[in-house]
Write a protein that binds this DNA or RNA. Structure first.
Lengths: 141, 141
DNA sequence: TTAATTGCAAACATTTTGCAGGTTC
DNA sequence: GAACCTGCAAAATGTTTGCAATTAA
C-alpha cells in the first residue's frame, strides 16, 4: 500500500499548495480527476470516484469542484448549457467541442496568436480567455 | 399604424428568408430581439415581449429561440451555466463576459487573427468559433 | 476545541415535453 | 384538411442550500 500512500501524499501536498485542506473526500476526487488531463462533469466524476471505491456525496463533489476551480487546481469549461466540465489541464489551451457527441478535445494554445487581444473595458480586468471551436461529425479513428 | 406594419412586413420577409413561418408570436419575439444588436436570455426576452404587449407563452419563447438559432437568425452564446444568451448580432464577432455582472459585450472579430485555426479532427467539420474573454470589475463609464 | 467539511434531502432555476386546441396555407 | 404552431402544466436536469453530524488541525 505504499504506492497509493505516496501518491496521496503528493496529491495532499498539491492541494495544500493551493490552499485546500486535503480531506478524505477531496483526495478521492483529486485522485480521479487529477490522474490525467481530462474533462469531466460533476456527475461523471461522482460515478468514477464511487466506482473507484470512494465514498462521497453529490453535494461534496459539487462543493469540491467549485473549490478546486476557485483555487486554480482545475478549470471550468462552459460549452454546454446542460453541464459544466472540469478540465484537469490547467496549462493555457483551447478546445474542440463536438456538439454531436459532447466530446471535448484539447487544442494546444501556442497555435493561436492570442497575445494581442483587445483590451478589456475600463474598470475591468481580464480573467481568462476561452476559445472553443464547435465541431460536428463522428470522429472515427 | 403603418410604420409598425411596414416594419413587421420587413421582419416577416426576413423570417421567411430564413425558412421560418412568420407567426404572430414569432413576429412579436423578433420585434424585440432583432430590434438591435443585443444579448438576451429566454426569460428576459419573455418579459420584454410581454412588456411590449406581446402574448406569448414561455414554451413558445424557448421553441422560437431554438428555431431562430437553428436557422441562423440569432446566435446562441454559452458563457454562463445558468442560462443561454441569444445574440441578435450574427456577424462574426466575439465577447467579453463580465463574470460579476453577467454582462455580455461584443468584440469586433477583425481584431483577432483567427484565420489559421487548427484543423478539426478527421471526420468532423468546424461549425463555429466562440471566443470569450472573461472579465471582472465594475465597468463604470 | 474550534473551525471547516460532509451528507442528506429538499429546494431551485432553467429548459423540455406531452398533448389538446388553434392557426395557416 | 394536413401540417405546423401555441399554451399550459407537469416533468426533467443539473446545481445549490440548510442544517445536523463528522472530521481536521
Amino acid at each position: 500500500m505504499n504506492e497509493r500512500t505516496d501518491q496521496d501524499d503528493r496529491l495532499a501536498t498539491r492541494l495544500r499548495a493551493h490552499g485546500i485542506a486535503p480531506t478524505r473526500q477531496r483526495l478521492a476526487i483529486a485522485r480521479v480527476l487529477l490522474a490525467a488531463p481530462q474533462h469531466l462533469s460533476a456527475d461523471e466524476l461522482l460515478d468514477r470516484v464511487r466506482a473507484a471505491g470512494g465514498r462521497v456525496s453529490k453535494a461534496t463533489v459539487y462543493n469540491t469542484l467549485a473549490v478546486f476551480a476557485r483555487k486554480g487546481l482545475v478549470r471550468e469549461v462552459i460549452v454546454d448549457p446542460a453541464r459544466v466540465f472540469y478540465d484537469s489541464n490547467t496549462a493555457p489551451h483551447h478546445h474542440f467541442y463536438n456538439v454531436e457527441t459532447g466530446e471535448l478535445i484539447d487544442v494546444e494554445a501556442p497555435d493561436l496568436p492570442l497575445d494581442r487581444l483587445p483590451p478589456p473595458p475600463e474598470g475591468t480586468v481580464a480573467e481568462g480567455v476561452d476559445l472553443v471551436i464547435r465541431i460536428r461529425g463522428a470522429a472515427r479513428a
